[in-house]
C-alpha cells in the first residue's frame, strides 16, 4: 500500500485508522476530500462524533487554503 496525500492528511489529524476506508470509498486525493459531508462520513464509517467534527474542520481548512491560493 503506497502512501498518498490523504494518508498524510489523516495522519496529521491523528485519524489514520480511517485511511483504508477513505481510499476504498474513492476519497484518495484532497480534491475529492473537499466534498466530504455527512453522507460521505457515513459511507466511510466515521461514526464517532468527535472524529466527524475533526474531519469537518479539516475539510473547511482545505477549502480555505484553496480560496487563498486562487487569489
Amino acid at each position: 500500500m503506497c502512501t498518498n496525500v490523504v494518508y498524510e492528511w489523516l495522519k496529521a489529524l491523528q485519524l489514520l485508522q480511517y485511511a483504508e476506508s477513505f481510499v476504498d470509498n474513492g476519497y484518495d486525493d484532497l480534491e475529492v476530500c473537499k466534498q466530504i459531508g455527512e453522507p460521505d462520513l457515513d459511507a466511510i464509517g466515521v461514526l464517532i462524533p468527535q472524529h466527524r467534527r475533526k474531519i469537518h474542520a479539516a475539510v473547511r481548512r482545505l477549502k480555505e487554503e484553496e480560496k487563498q491560493s486562487d487569489t
Partner: peptide, 12 residues
Amino acid sequence: VTLAGHQKKIMN
C-alpha cells in the same frame, strides 16, 4: 450514486 468518492471510483 451521490457520494463524490464513489462517483470518482466508478468513473475512474
